[in-house]
Every structure is written in C-alpha cells, then in structure tokens.
Amino acid sequence: MAAAAHGTVHHSSTGIDNRKLLMWIFLASECLFFGSLISAYLIFKGASLVGPYPEEILDIPLTSTSTFVLLMSSLSMVLAVYGAEHARPRMMKLWLFVTVLLGLAFLGFQVYEFRAFGQEGLNLSTNQFGATFFVLTGFHGTHVGVGVVILSSLLFGSFRRSGLGSEAGFHVEVAGLYWHFVDIVWIVIFTLIYLIPQ
C-alpha cells in the first residue's frame, strides 16, 4: 500500500518533486565535470610549444554568432516551457521546434569550426591547446547533441493523440533545465576560452 502510494507521489521530504531534484543535483555534478575540464584548459593554456596557438586560430566573430544562437535557444526554450505550463500546446510545439533548430545550428557552427581547425593543422594531438580545447568544447557539443535528442523526443511526443500527458509542463520544464544549463556552461566557456586575451 505504501509502495502504491510511492508509485504515484513523486515528492521528496523537501516537498520538491524528486525527479526535478534529481535533475538539479545532476546539474550540480555537471558543474564539477565542466569545472575540471575548464581547469585543465587554463592550466595548459600557453604551454604549447608548436602552433597553431589560440590567438592565431580562434574565430571570435564566428563564435560570437554561435553564442548568440545558443542564447536565443534558451529564450525559445523558456517560451516552450511557458506554453507547456499554461496549457498552450501550439506555443509549446512551436518554440520546442525553434529550440531544436537553434541547437542544430549551434552544432553546425561547431562542426564548421572543428573542420576549419583541422585544416589549419590543429587536432587533439597537435599540442596542449588542441588537446584541452577539443575535449572541453567537444564534451559541451555532446551535451548540446543530447539536449537536441531530448527536445526532439518531446516534440515528437507532443504530436501523439495524448500529447505529453497530464505532466507535459513538468517534462518540458525539466528538459528546459538541462538545456539552460548547457547554455550557461557555454557562457563561461565563451568568456574564458574565446574572449579573454591569450
């Protein structure tokens, strides 16, 4: 009986839905993950003896554009969450679709950047800059990719007859938390790796 009760009630002793709590704890742990990768980049920054070096290869105008794209995807995401929480499915679907498109555009920018760097002779094993840069931004790109998959599945799910069910707002909100986290990590990466002078 108690188990049955637990099956329907998702709230922890704090009063917070435990699925949402799990997402926030996961995001807190992700801070440690990205913090370590950023530390490695900063420690090895300037330790490369052969080029290409960051100042000769980083394309700040291009990355500023992709940063703007990711920022706008956060805006479209929060509008999708608003639509889901206020029982406005068309609004939710529209902005989820826009978010997926913007996420794919960001990934496109990253693929273009990686290919351009490859043509300039920079890869994972070229120097310390290449090793730490590709690991850091590559893992971030992977997170964006996972986010695109999650949002796409929600978008496809929303077209079913039953939609996303009675907890549509909750599902979209939790997916939105992940997406916004990917955005704030990029805010830090963009500043520390691209904007701060080498």
Binding site: L21, I25, L27, A28, C31, L32, F34, G35
Partner: peptide, 9 residues
Amino acid sequence: FFVFGFVLA
C-alpha cells in the same frame, strides 16, 4: 543544491 555544486567546482 546548485550553488553547492557550483562553489565546489
């Protein structure tokens, strides 16, 4: 929870 993770990082 989040601030704890961020401060630790």
